[in-house]
Each structure stands twice: as C-alpha cells, then as structure tokens.
Design a protein around this nucleic acid. Sequence first.
DNA 1: ATGAAAGCGCTAACAT
DNA 2: ATGTTAGCGCTTTCAT
Lengths: 333, 333
Amino acid sequence: MVDVPSRVTLAEVAAMAGVSVGTASKALNDRGSMREETRTRVRQAADRLGFQIDAVARSLQTGRSYTVGMITTDSIGRFSIPVMLGVEDTLGSGQMSVLLCDARDDRIREQYYLKTLLSRRVDGIIVTGRRTDPRPPLGQRPPVPVVYAFMPSNDPEDCSIVPDEADGAARAVRHLLDTGRERVALVAGPERHHSARARVDGAAEALAAEGRTPVLEPVYGEWSEAWGRQAARILLRRDPEVDAVFCASDQIARGLADGLREAGRRVPHDVAVVGFDNWDVMTDAARPQLTSVDMDLEGLGRDAANLLLAAIAGEPQPGVHLHPCRLAIRSST
Amino acid sequence: MVDVPSRVTLAEVAAMAGVSVGTASKALNDRGSMREETRTRVRQAADRLGFQIDAVARSLQTGRSYTVGMITTDSIGRFSIPVMLGVEDTLGSGQMSVLLCDARDDRIREQYYLKTLLSRRVDGIIVTGRRTDPRPPLGQRPPVPVVYAFMPSNDPEDCSIVPDEADGAARAVRHLLDTGRERVALVAGPERHHSARARVDGAAEALAAEGRTPVLEPVYGEWSEAWGRQAARILLRRDPEVDAVFCASDQIARGLADGLREAGRRVPHDVAVVGFDNWDVMTDAARPQLTSVDMDLEGLGRDAANLLLAAIAGEPQPGVHLHPCRLAIRSST
DNA sequence: ATGAAAGCGCTAACAT
DNA sequence: ATGTTAGCGCTTTCAT
C-alpha cells in the first residue's frame, strides 16, 4: 500500500483563516451570507494550502456524485467512440466525470456494471452501442435517469437519441439530383441491420418525393469494400446507363468506386458516388475522395449528455430524438 | 431534481438480521470471526432487501475509491482505444472502475482533469496517447501511482509500457527472409514520428543481423495510402528487382500493394508486402489481404493495468516496459 | 455574520 | 461472538 500524502482538509483551511469549518464551507461554495472580507480570507487560505475539496465526502453528504456512467453495450467501436467523446466533452466541462463500462455484448456484464454504477451513486447513465438497432432497456428501471445514445431503447418511455439516417440519405439523394443526375441506384448493406434498411429506404423515399424511382431495386450485401466492388459489376450489368449511386456506407462506396474505375467508368464524370458515415479513413483514401453523409456523432453525444443533464435536473424528455445528419461534399459527386 | 428512491442501508440489513451494523459489516466483508449461521443470516437479509453497498461511504471511511483515472492526452484515437479496452477489462473484473478523461492534447485540460481525479480520490492513474513519442510527465508528481501506456513518459523514474516496435519489425523481416526473399526494401512513415523511425530502424537492424542490408535507404513519407502508392513507383524505379517490402503501416502497405499491382507486379508472387498495426480495416480490404505486425494493444492495456495495480499495492515497477508484438500472416507474403 | 453540532453510511478499534 | 462507538470530510440546520 503506497501511502498517499494526507490531503489538506477544510478544517485546516478554516483554522488558517481563523473561522469555523461551517463558515469555510459556505465561503468556498458561495452559500449563505457573510462579510466579503471573510470570504476572501478563506479563499486565500484555501489557495495557499492548495486545498482541493474531497469529492467523496461531499458526495456522501449531498447524495450526488457528479458522476455519470457510460455503458457501451456491444463493445466500443468506431461509432461509439465519437459518441463517447461528445458525451465526455459536455459532461467534463460541466464538472461531471464519466465512468466507463464496456459490457461487451454480455447482458450479465451489463447488469454487473449497472449495479456497480448505482453502488457508486452515479447521477445518471448513458447507454450506447455500435449499431442503431433498438435494444431492450436496462433491467428493472434504474433509480437514476438513463439516456440511450446511437442505439435506442425499444421502450418508447425511455429517452433515446439516434442519428436521423433517413434524413441523411435524403440529403445525399437530393444532392445527386441537384447536380443533374438522372438514373440513381441504391446499394445497401446487410438487410438485417437497421442502418442498412433505414438508409436505403430514406434514399428511396427521397427519390419518390421528387417523382423518381431507383433505377433498380436496392441491392443488399455486406458492409465491405469487396461487396462494393461486386455491386459495381451487378449495377453495370443490369443498367449500364446508371449515372449515380447512393451507397449505405463509405466502405461500400469506396469498393464501388474502385469497381467502376476498373470497369472503365470515370467517377464522377460518368457516375457520381455517395457514401455514408463520412469516415475519413475511407473518404480520403478513395479515388476520388468521397462525398459522404456525416451523422455528427460527436454532436449526438453532446446532445445525449444534455438530455441526461436535463433529466437529472428533473426535466426528462422521453421518446426517440432524431439528430440530423449533414452532407460532406467531395470530388466523387 | 429527480428524487432517487432511498437505498437500502446497512443498518436496515442489520436490523432484519437482528444484529448490529458492525456485525453486519463484518459479515458481508468476510472480516473478523463469527458464527457461520450469523454470517449467512446477514447475507440472506442483504439479499432479501437487495442491499447494495454505498461505495461512496465506504471510500470515505477507507480512503480508497477502487477507481482509477484514465487520461488520454492527445484525444482518443485508433491506438488508444484498444489500450483503454484492455485497461478497462483488467480493472473492471477486479472491481475497479475507470474514470475517463479526454485531455485533447491540452496541458491545461490535463491539469484540470488531474485535479478532478485526485479530488475523487482515485487509487491510481493511467495516461495514454495516440503516438509512441515520449511525453513529459504529469505535473508535480501526483500522490498516487501513474502508469504511462503506449505513449511513455520521458522521465525514466516513471512507469511506462510501450509496444516493442523494433521487435515487431524484426519479426516481419525475419518472416520475409524465411520465405526466401532476397531484396528487401523499407518504406517508412513521417520521420518526425518515433514509430516511423523505430519500425524501419528495427527492420534494418534485423536485416543486418542476418548479414543483409536493405536494397536501398529507407524512404520516409506519410502514413497514407497515397504515399504507399507513390513509394511503389519510387521503389520500382530505383530497384526493379525488389522482391519484398516492409511498410511502417498498413495504410502504406495497402497503397503500396495497389501501386505494385497497377504497375503489373503480382503480390506476393513477384513482391511480398508486410504492413504494421494489423488494422483489420486495411489488412482485410487490401488485395491481397495483408500480413501485418500486431502490437497487441489490448494486451498492452491489460499489462498497464496490472502494473498500476502492483504499484497501488506498494510494488511499483519504474522504467520503460516493452510489450512484444506478434505477426499476423496473410496472403501478401 | 459566524459558530456549534448533527449527521451522510460505512469500517474498525475497542468493549463486553 | 457480538455490540458500541468514534470517526472519515463535508454540508447544513440551528443557535448565538
């Protein structure tokens, strides 16, 4: 056991300032009323001694820990990270700390962490995951507010916030039409993924709203570049005249662009390509660089944190909140 | 303020079991000695009431929080994430919780977080970053143990753990030689990055140990696929006979493989290619899939956590610890 | 305006 | 073997 140098206590500050602990507490917390001179005297003593309040003792007294738990249900991945950063950013600057829990897609682990968090008196909990498919809520409604971010709860009474993927797809499609494209194809990911469906459905609806239809039924596949390359061959075979493709992910878009190029088509001259996720690793390495839909996950995380803070403050906002996407335009369109 | 249902307290458990709080405490913590029957009676009461110990109160009493802080100095990135997961994994199963702090490459923010963590009485701190370049230690030696993971401290008195990148490069080179390659070239990343130097230097030394030299001086560039493609052209121009290339990253390797293919070379038939990082996004999407050096960052994170636990237990192990790499062999060699 | 004192829920030393 | 009690460091009435 390494011995921790004894910390400066409020009592010592009070002694140095020549007041009682009660007064010292009020002085440092701007509570109650007292001579301004006393307040500054206490403050100076605290500074001089390098006083750092003991958050543990304060929590015990007030019942609030100024801590929130963040549970990632199915392991930390590419999507949960920006969300976590946004959460941490908002909470951290608001004096709150974040306890990180990686439940690794294991309900037992999840319950274990939930218990731990409650035992630590967290003021609230944020639950996130790596897919937008709805999930069952945490066990018996926890005694503190919970916000589901990115991966929503399937209970509408819960508070969830998710990217508006249909909106993102619509923006992409409108952009393609705005730039004069006529024959738009849709390439999806795996049909079992909510994201894959939401994105192509959103794109199809946006086309319909403009009185168009996709040049052929959306084709479902995987989230991989290999599938994108394959999709390029399928598309060109079924409709050689296609002049625009909306892809449900950047990986697919990159593979598709490669496939088109290898088939002799020029992007964007002959065919415009739009991706989804705005994942720089893909958008910047693709040739040409990809126009893509950005879900603004960090912003979504910040919003999630604010929803949680509101709930903690007694103003819960149940329901599924949609966070808008934006389009990042590059040279593939 | 949402009102939190009052929690079950140890006093209530004691009352139900018909013992005093002191006895109840000992019973639940396996301390002291008492009739087995009493112990089980208390346990049953605790279960029945759904008793969950108040970690805050326990911390105040014992001075230990069973919490460690994890500070990522220059924002959370591709490399810090697996490290964090490893840390969280080891600590989480050991009943410890992790407080997440993202200092975003800002020393002010870092100091702020350090204060916050100490205020919360963390038992220790793990510092990580996204590059392996050494960094100055956290401000005036904190009163709790600190372990630097991935990004080491430049103070040898501190405890750091980093991937043995030279070892990884050596494994890659030996593999190339083992498979009969004769003319090995080295393609680096940006010279200002410690990783770029450590990796090509390690590779060069491994060649030297086998009595070989690189077919030409290592070429420095960027961490991008574009640089890999460019490097392919440079290499083929300078030495058309090259039959193996060690690349300092998977992105470079993928670009290089693309460049070689577009120049008519077959990988691995004509030229073998090895990457570094074993980043699935690159290794699996490349054609052919890439052999690559894996730094086992999650294992490194677990080791970091164990070093921290040891230090907390009073057995610090100062110095820079090297974590071995391993080679993931795929079809590019 | 300031001080005194009662806890917050728990652990641990000391009594019984 | 079990109970009693004194804090851990702070906030917050309630006196003065």
